[in-house]
Design a protein around this nucleic acid. Structure first.
Lengths: 175, 175
DNA sequence: GTACCCATGTAATTGGTTACATGATTAT
DNA sequence: ATAATCATGTAACCAATTACATGGGTAC
């Protein structure tokens, strides 16, 4: 069920084709929140279209169809968001799982992986700062999807960096 | 594939029955890293047993079987951890997805949800601080599974709280 | 003209959830 | 005795991944 709301949310931000949605998943949203491949996106768009939650607003070259959210779609999305977070759980994040299981390694091996984690996270933060600046430049409306989301990523990665530094310290002093 | 490593990791920390593993998923690990239900856990344990990656170390009342990781299982787990994080992606987290899509709401509605988020995260941090203290008390080995994991949760939730405060401020000043 | 990216789709398989099902043990 | 919890399992269904498949457009 979450996939359909992810799609409605992305289309509420701006109309896109299936192809563009696939890319948007691969970039920001797929890295923190919800990932999807084109083979799942296209069939789901069809269903949403059949339920009139989205509409085709434009057709371009190579059979490209641009989808736009409808009023009914917006209601559906709002309803889902307002009905509450329904509790946590059901998380699936291989990256974090690997961090959870580090204690199965020797301390120095774990430290090496944590250092990679730090490097990677710092790279991501730089990229996200760029994305955030872009989102603000495009429309100085901070409530826009891109700005809140990009900033969430920055906070999340900073936390990862800080935790990794702490964990490295602990592993070093324990050993 | 990740489920089997999650199971091996939990069993590497300490031997458990399928029932206990189900609970351990529902508590800590399922909330951040990887979730699983008993209907998936039991069949996977059978497979791991058939491959000699785990062994039955004890049988108790009501057909209870306690599983222990074998040397082969430990090798398998280490191999997976050392082969690298394989890239990010494939994340699935409905809670974060909802935060991503908040801009589809009116600013005051979004603020209300963000405030719930803050409350919830602060509750979780308190619980985790307890879990962390426990983990350190049980064995003052900081490299233990529980301690690193619990502390990761604390950092992650603190980041959520900080981001939510920032986002509330932005939404208020934009409107 | 040919290589690369755009763009969409389907099929087969695996992974995961919900619901169904059963029975033993413990506490009251 | 009876309700709650421990403990395990299976079946039907839905969600997601991987692999297969096709063709149009653009840049060189």
């Amino acid at each position: 069920m979450a996939l359909r709301y992810a799609l409605l949310g992305l289309l509420d931000d701006r109309p896109s084709s299936g192809y563009e949605l696939t890319q948007r998943f691969a970039e920001g949203i797929g890295a923190y929140a919800w990932d999807a491949k084109h083979s799942q996106i296209y069939p789901e768009l069809r269903k949403l279209l059949a339920e009139d939650l989205i509409a085709i607003s434009d057709q371009g070259a190579r059979g490209r169809k641009t989808y736009t959210i409808t009023e009914a779609g917006r209601r559906e999305l709002r309803g889902w968001l307002l009905e509450g977070p329904a509790s946590i759980g059901g998380v699936r994040n291989e990256y974090v799982l690997r961090l959870f299981l580090l204690s199965a390694l020797e301390p120095d091996e774990a430290v090496r992986i944590l250092q990679h984690t730090v490097d990677f996270a710092e790279q991501q933060i730089e990229q996200l700062n760029g994305a955030y600046a872009n989102a603000r430049a495009r429309q100085d409306d901070i409530t826009s999807y891109g700005a809140l989301a990009a900033q969430y990523g920055v906070y999340a990665y900073r936390a990862t960096v800080e935790w990794a530094h702490w964990a490295i310290g602990e592993l070093r002093s324990a050993h």
